[in-house]
């Protein structure tokens, strides 16, 4: 298993003011799976993503990602873990404004020390002719595609996507989801966090959270739908 969570909990604060963001989380995700983590605002889905990506630490339980037990890893090890195991795609894109599109993808190569070819990756996301542009010269959808290319440039086996279509219109969002689904087909584990139930229809598996607990974990109701059938 690529991602293992066992009895994971995450609490903020102490005593009567403590907030439980996650509780009793057991989750296993393998390579090639496209998993959507679904839940309303405050359900703990982003916290779950941050714990898996070692941006946050679990208060209890075991978190093992890519063979690395990150609950007991040192701070130095966690940097290496993020560089070599997981790659993030953010709702707000978070591209570097001072770098060109190609250089933003190159950043992913430099951060992970991979051997990926930025131009090839840009072509794979349909931006082969925009390598010399700067982020502010692209549309939202194009920027998110650059972010995906950057994440792919690391060569890491796990993609963690936090509301990747949140800033995009429907048509563009669908294109992004297609790209991400493609990566699952290429053997990566793709974890998408969203509050949009419609998006969950395209998943291989939907993990539904409520108040920090998993209330559902299985294929989407009615089976997995192709991206083209989605509508929101």
């Amino acid at each position: 298993m690529l991602i293992e969570l066992k009895d994971v909990a995450k609490r903020y604060g102490e005593g009567p003011l403590a907030v439980t963001a996650l509780a009793d989380i057991d989750l296993l995700i393998d390579q090639g799976e496209f998993v959507v983590v679904l839940g309303p605002s405050g359900s703990g889905k982003t916290t779950l993503l941050n714990v898996v990506g070692a941006l946050d630490t679990a208060s209890e339980g075991l978190v093992k990602v890519g063979g690395v037990e990150i609950t007991t890893a040192t701070r130095r090890d966690l940097f290496g873990f993020r560089a070599g195991t997981v790659s993030f795609i953010f709702q707000a894109f978070n591209l570097f404004p001072g770098l060109t599109v190609r250089e933003n993808v190159q950043f992913g190569v430099d951060a992970a020390g991979s051997a990926a070819d930025p131009d090839a990756l840009l072509s794979s996301v349909g931006l082969g002719d925009k390598g010399d542009r700067f982020p502010h010269e692209l549309s939202g959808g194009e920027q998110q595609r650059v972010a995906i290319a950057r994440a792919l440039a690391t060569g890491n086996p796990i993609l963690l996507c936090d509301e990747p279509t949140g800033e995009l219109d429907f048509r563009t969002g669908v294109q992004i989801l297609e790209l991400l689904k493609e990566q699952a087909g290429n053997g990566r584990a793709v974890l998408v966090v969203t509050h949009n139930r419609e998006i969950s229809r395209m998943a291989d598996r939907v993990v539904e959270l409520s108040s920090g607990r998993i209330i559902g974990d299985g294929p989407p109701v009615g089976g997995t739908s192709p991206v083209s059938e989605l509508h929101w």
């Binding site: 404004p97 001072g98 060109t100 250089e103 190159q106 010399d132 502010h136």
Partner: peptide, 28 residues
């Protein structure tokens, strides 16, 4: 929020460098 860092980018050349960490200071 300014997600793209709009603003004048003076004289930023488009020739790609192979080490983005090295070029970031001058670009900033």
């Amino acid at each position: 929020p300014d997600l793209t860092g709009r603003g004048t980018i003076v004289g930023l050349h488009r020739r790609t460098v192979r080490n983005t960490f090295a070029v970031m200071p001058l670009r900033n």
